[in-house]
């Protein structure tokens, strides 16, 4: 276990090194920091002095070394716009994004496994066909469009009642999309502070309602992907000899589906899932923009618009770090599920 972690840590450092070079190259080449820091009236001689003072005339490697040493201590300089350390700005926006990703991930996991398994066990049932059809639609529609449709339906509402009014479920659905009292679709509402800069939406019912639409639209691309992935894997696993052998042993179908088959199905799903959850963090840019969710994605777009280069670089580094951490965790989980992977490093 320790050997595995050390190895993974080494990988992680390597990845972070590559990301830092890219991030630094951006900082080094994108715009002139002096221009951003001082006003128009400052004469050229003072600018040159300042440039020398800040070490901007040093060779690339020296500048990179300085950047890397600072970055290792989580010091990425000051944001031009906020005039605060960039890490503080990120720390203020990080919880919103992480909570949004967590909510979307929760939706994806809790929905994709049962739906995927069901549509693999009963591929011909109409419900399976319905899920498959819906999932194609979900994959094909871009996140921002899904988000806008969700806002129209559930936040603004429509004046017509497409579902039968005289049935309980019909009127419930009609109420859901009526123009009166829609779901919140702007910002985070009043999140509850937990500690430091961390405010959470999970602590109150009101906070949760603010999460619903953004989380659903963020999940709308990954969820169908996972449903289809789980279904395809499960169908294949059900054809395998070990499933047939389990049947020949007289094991109940329930145990075969949910132990023998599901455990094998989850192996590739976990691998793909690790990468995709990282990608989800990147997808938040779209979702957060549409819902004005005050997270890192929205902050990043702002930073680009105002050429807040230190903040852009910090965002890249932090997102890279999140990627690396989730992948390491996913590898650990994979190792726990798959016995052919030895976490202990001792020979089989």
């Amino acid at each position: 276990m320790i050997a595995f972690l050390v190895k993974r840590l080494f990988h992680a450092l390597l990845v972070m090194f590559v990301i830092s070079i890219i991030a630094f190259a951006i900082q080094d080449n994108l715009g002139d920091p002096i221009q951003q820091m001082v006003g128009q009236s400052v004469p050229e001689s003072e600018r040159a002095e300042l440039r020398e003072e800040l070490g901007l005339n040093d060779p690339f490697l020296v500048q990179y070394a300085r950047f890397a040493i600072n970055a290792a201590q989580f010091d990425f300089g000051y944001s031009y716009v906020f005039n605060q350390p960039t890490t503080e700005v990120i720390a203020r926006h990080l919880p919103a994004t992480l909570e949004l990703v967590a909510a979307a991930t929760f939706l994806i996991i809790t929905l994709s496994v049962p739906i995927g398994v069901y549509s693999a066990i009963k591929p011909r049932a109409w419900l399976s066909r319905f899920f498959m059809g819906i999932s194609i639609v979900g994959i094909s529609i871009p996140v921002f469009l899904t988000a806008i449709m969700l806002i129209q339906l559930f936040a603004i509402g429509v004046s017509w009642t497409p579902f039968p009014v005289d049935t309980a479920w019909g009127s419930w659905l009609n109420d859901l999309i009526s123009t009166e009292g829609g779901m919140p679709a702007y910002g985070r509402g009043n999140p509850v502070p937990v500690f430091g800069t961390w405010e959470t939406n999970f602590a109150s019912l009101e906070g949760l309602t603010y999460l619903v639409l953004p989380a659903v639209s963020l999940a709308s691309i990954m969820l169908p992907l996972f449903i289809r992935l789980i279904r395809a894997e499960m169908l294949e696993v059900m054809q395998s000899d070990y499933v047939k052998f389990a049947r020949a042993k007289g094991i109940s179908m329930r145990r075969i589906y949910f132990l023998h088959a599901l455990k094998n199905t989850m192996l590739p799903v976990i691998t793909v899932g690790g990468v995709q959850i990282g990608t989800l963090v990147a997808y938040t840019i779209l979702t957060e923009t549409v819902f004005q969710w005050p997270g890192m994605g929205l902050m990043f777009l702002d930073a680009i618009e105002r050429s807040d280069i230190p903040l852009i670089v910090t965002y890249l580094m932090i997102v890279g770090l999140i990627f690396v951490i989730t992948n390491t965790i996913v590898d650990l989980i994979y190792g726990l599920v798959n016995p052919t992977v030895k976490l202990t490093g001792k020979p089989a």
């Binding site: 000899d241 070990y242 052998f245 389990a246 020949a248 455990k263 192996l267 599920v337 016995p339």
Partner: peptide, 11 residues
């Protein structure tokens, strides 16, 4: 079964 490599559940 025929193929012992495939008959036992790997996990």
């Amino acid at each position: 079964f025929q193929d012992p490599m495939m008959t036992l559940n790997p996990v």
